[in-house]
Design a protein around this nucleic acid. Sequence first.
DNA 1: GCGTGATATATCGTTTCGATATATCGAAGC
DNA 2: GCTTCGATATATCGAAACGATATATCACGC
Lengths: 206, 206
Amino acid sequence: MKQPGMLEMPVLGLLKGQEMHGYELRKQLSGMLGPFWQVSWGSLYPTLRRLAKAEAVEKVVEPKPKPARRTTKRAVAKAEKTTFEMSPGRRKTVYRITPYGEELFTSMLEETAAAVDAEHFTLKLAFFRYLQPDTRLALLERRRAYLQEKLAQFKTNLRDYRERIDSYTLSLQNHSMAATQSDIEWIDELIREERSVQGGATPTQA
Amino acid sequence: MKQPGMLEMPVLGLLKGQEMHGYELRKQLSGMLGPFWQVSWGSLYPTLRRLAKAEAVEKVVEPKPKPARRTTKRAVAKAEKTTFEMSPGRRKTVYRITPYGEELFTSMLEETAAAVDAEHFTLKLAFFRYLQPDTRLALLERRRAYLQEKLAQFKTNLRDYRERIDSYTLSLQNHSMAATQSDIEWIDELIREERSVQGGATPTQA
DNA sequence: GCGTGATATATCGTTTCGATATATCGAAGC
DNA sequence: GCTTCGATATATCGAAACGATATATCACGC
């Protein structure tokens, strides 16, 4: 994944559920979105730092995981150095979302505008339960329109280039088109379910 | 797309076919890989600069597209400033691959190692015609193994998380799994075709 | 005690991103 | 002829994401 500021939203969304440390956040992200979606450390920790600086999250000081009976002088000396902040190692820096962070998360999730490409959409889908039904529908329909447009572009493209591309590239494009078509059908199913739920209570959650 | 130095290979591959300028390269890239694959300028031009610095490509001085009868003093002054290099505007900086660039391209394309993720694989597929049949097969089988592994991870993941994820996320994962399965079937087809072309002609090495 | 692998935090340099600036050309419209 | 406009074309900027890597702790099996 690659867009600027893409991680902020899902990180806040997860922390909305419960406070967590970095390692756990990464695991949850993969658990939610599947094994293809791997967040790199070089991406996650700077994001947490940015969020902390913006006061959207705050660090929670964890109680020492082990009293660690310190008997030797070396251990005492080491402990003294470690006592307040700093020093790497097993520290479990836990992050908690702030009220401002909750606001930020909601506004990020709601702006349906250009959240149309695969990754943005996928990310938002994972937090659909926090959205109003009509916003959900709007998002789904926008995504559908986007995919349909891409499908049309595939066709135009193939019409113009077919003779100039080799069999491997042709096979690739055909497969990509089929995948896009399959995506559309999946979205259609989601739209259908969404509509059938509208008019009753709030959608299922589990 | 996102890996470091991912653009180098396809750019060289296209220039191997014929010399081109930046704008054309971008169009060709989209034409080959489909409308989802959009290369940004901020990515393409630095890549060309890197390749030029490494002497893998060279700039070809284009004949002035218009002689532009320079009559006024102002025009002459401007021409003087423009004569050699520099000044923006319609210049059509054409790039040509060097012998070293050809070597580089081949070695980049051949190293089957970690070229297993979607984008790397897709990119290589578009230049499969430059590879030996056995290298092609190796690449296809590696990609297949990778997808199969991801499929297994999906299943493990769902077994462990199913109760904790909501209906939208579940639907997403199911769709992603189906897409992965479809990818595998496509790869299988490519493998089958590859093998049938190889026939019994080439005995599998020694 | 000793190694190994999972947990955990963090940064480094490079690359990619979207946005934007600048300029030229051809065709359309006046 | 003049001007506007959209396509062509090159280029850079700051922010963000990348893979790789360093460091450290803990749980375990041996």
